[in-house]
Design a protein around this nucleic acid. Structure first.
Lengths: 153, 153
DNA sequence: GTACATGCAAACCGTTTGCACTATC
DNA sequence: GATAGTGCAAACGGTTTGCATGTAC
């Protein structure tokens, strides 16, 4: 098992408590993947989680990693990150706040103009990155789908 | 061919001029895909571009759509948009400004904390979306890769 | 004991590639 | 005429799925 600081251990236990409450089973694989994700200070792919845990858990399968990451995403503990020009999905445990508006129901993607501070400049000065382009995505439910959902009740 | 307004026609001709300058060939497929993308007010997938153009261009292939979208992306005319929980890449002709910071060279993904206005609230009031989560991505070259590139000169 | 989770391997599907052919320049 | 671009079909690769088995409860 990954070694967690006291603070992270609290987080870890809180998620386990959440699983118990939901009557989800707490398996060795699940604990290992959860601990890995909580401890991770990078944004691993499923493959990377699998490789890193395979040493300690030789019987772990890639499908199980995907299954558990999916569960963690569905429960709101982990965020998916997609990067252009890369088929891989990366996973981030409770990613920080990180505008296209995407409807999670119908998949429609809309543009939205909103007043923003000069993020690129700020990012550049703060990180030393040479900024080439940026992408702000907001996920939600569009008006049409909200209506449809209301009508469905 | 898609019918373009005068303004869009100027844009279209400008891109063609760009291609001539680069000694890229201006084929029927290329013109059709470009015009489609310039006229599009949505964010089509390659598949959708292919389907929509297939009527007028029955011999057009999906691979050619991918090739040309790739070219338009490489030349900076089109932006790719990736959405979580969806394998598809969407394409946006000169997307509007739309903070994970992603290094285009090494693929490293970093978190960054930046002061932002209450975007979600603003988006919600402006669009009527019910916001559930958001994702801000900035692409650039990280300090390490900048150094490596400088050293390579 | 029940049924959710796992592991394996095969299927899936968006995207890319290899190659012969076509058409732009 | 040279060669970049095209079209087709096959390959690729990240992710998902079906199913038999294992195990948390």
């Amino acid at each position: 098992m990954i070694d967690l600081t006291e603070e992270l251990e609290v987080e870890y236990q809180a998620v386990l408590a959440h699983f118990r409450k939901k009557h989800s089973r707490i398996t060795e694989s699940r604990k290992a993947i959860l601990a890995y994700m909580i401890a991770a200070n990078h944004h691993p792919s499923a493959e990377q989680v699998y490789k890193d845990l395979s040493f300690k858990y030789p019987s772990l399968s890639l499908a199980t990693v995907y299954n558990n990451l999916r569960v963690l995403v569905d429960e709101g503990f982990v965020t998916e990150i997609k990067v252009t020009n890369d088929k891989t999905t990366y996973f981030d445990y409770k990613g920080h706040d990180h505008i296209n508006v995407i409807c999670e129901n119908c998949g429609k993607i809309s543009d939205l103009e909103v007043e923003l501070p000069d993020i690129a400049h700020e990012v550049a000065s703060q990180t030393g990155y040479h900024i080439t382009k940026s992408q702000f995505l907001i996920y939600g439910i569009c008006e049409n789908c909200q209506k449809e959902q209301e009508e469905r009740l």
